[in-house]
């Protein structure tokens, strides 16, 4: 606390978030990782627009090595590898980040409310989690895909009619989007379960501790106790788990594509590129290594940023 300052009117406590931000800025690895992630996002979402079309095939130019036209060479169908990696990164990052953000919000709130309330409500909420764990995931995805495919057709017809945009690009874009949405919805809907369990266990142990009792005896509302006193203390393990779910979801999408239920060809994602590259592992290792490099480096950045956040948000860390 900064209460040692002489003038009482300035002696305000700094908030956890201010402290955390301050500590995070001191952490060079975390800052570097943050910058790297921003660059990666710019690369995938801005630079990709200036690249060659990732789906144009040129069968005369298969497996070419790096050249002026194709900086990272071409794949088994003569498509530009760099452009495929960047476009694939769009899908992977959207899936990984959005699903994680949703899972983070739902999981933490759900687990915290369940653990703090206790009793019947807790039992009901956690048994619902048990039910959701065992819901057949693939069935859900197939149903959602069906739903969205129908809607996507209507939507693109509507947009073409109303806005008078060129037909082909609109349809292509909408198909790309409608390809991801069911995956996103399904993964977000079921991705928060373990996080809720982890948070609940943390909250159960916090609600007996003195600082919670103090907050309760001050007459604070349960919501305020949860949001201001308990949840910030549970963030450490949650953030660690969340840095795991980003790559987890990205790879899960790849597994779904392995089963033919994920991203549909010719669209790609990092997971799909890695999976396809694995087929040519022995003859064309670059097709596996290059997408793998983009994926792994992004992952390491997330990991270090997450560790930095965990350290920064640790309420017991020294305030220096």
């Amino acid at each position: 606390m900064t209460s040692s300052e002489p003038q009482p009117e300035f002696a305000r406590g700094t908030s956890l978030w201010m402290d955390a931000w301050h500590r995070l800025r001191q952490n060079k690895v975390a800052v570097g990782s943050g910058i790297f992630l921003i660059l990666m996002l710019l690369l995938c979402f801005v630079a990709a627009w200036f690249m060659a079309d990732p789906n144009i095939q040129n069968l005369d130019n298969k497996f070419s090595s790096s050249s002026g036209a194709h900086w990272l060479g071409t794949d088994q169908m003569g498509r530009d590898l760099l452009s495929r990696i960047l476009y694939g990164g769009q899908l992977s990052l959207v899936v990984g980040l959005t699903a994680t953000a949703v899972a983070f919000c739902i999981g933490i709130l759900y687990g915290a409310v369940s653990g703090y309330t206790g009793g019947r409500i807790d039992a009901t909420m956690m048994r619902l989690v048990d039910v959701l764990y065992a819901i057949p995931f693939l069935v859900l995805i197939i149903l959602l895909q069906q739903l969205f495919d129908a809607k996507a057709g209507e939507a693109s017809a509507w947009i073409i009619e109303k806005l008078n945009i060129e037909k082909q690009t609109t349809q292509k874009t909408i198909r790309r989007i409608s390809n991801v949405v069911p995956l996103l919805v399904a993964i977000s809907a079921l991705g928060w379960l373990t996080l809720a369990r982890i948070t609940r266990a943390q909250v159960l142990s916090m609600k007996q501790q003195e600082f919670t009792q103090a907050a309760r005896s001050l007459g604070l509302s349960p919501m305020r106790i949860l949001l201001r006193h308990i949840i910030p203390n549970t963030l450490g393990p949650s953030i660690v788990y969340v840095t795991l779910t980003v790559p987890g979801f990205i790879m899960y999408e790849a597994t779904l594509s392995f089963l033919g239920l994920g991203i549909k060809a010719p669209n790609s994602s990092w997971g799909v590129l890695i999976k396809d590259g694995a087929n040519f592992m022995e003859t064309q290792p670059m097709l596996l290594i290059l997408p793998g490099l983009f994926f792994t480096s992004t992952l390491f950045a997330f990991n270090f940023l997450g560790d930095g956040l965990r350290d920064a948000l640790d309420p017991k860390a020294a305030k220096d």
Partner: peptide, 22 residues
């Protein structure tokens, strides 16, 4: 060890499996 752990997460089963086989 954390680098090792990250690699464990990045490299999905459909890559580790064939690698171990080969």
């Amino acid at each position: 060890s954390m680098g090792f752990a990250m690699i464990g997460i990045c490299v999905a089963a459909f890559i580790v499996g064939p690698l171990l086989q080969t």
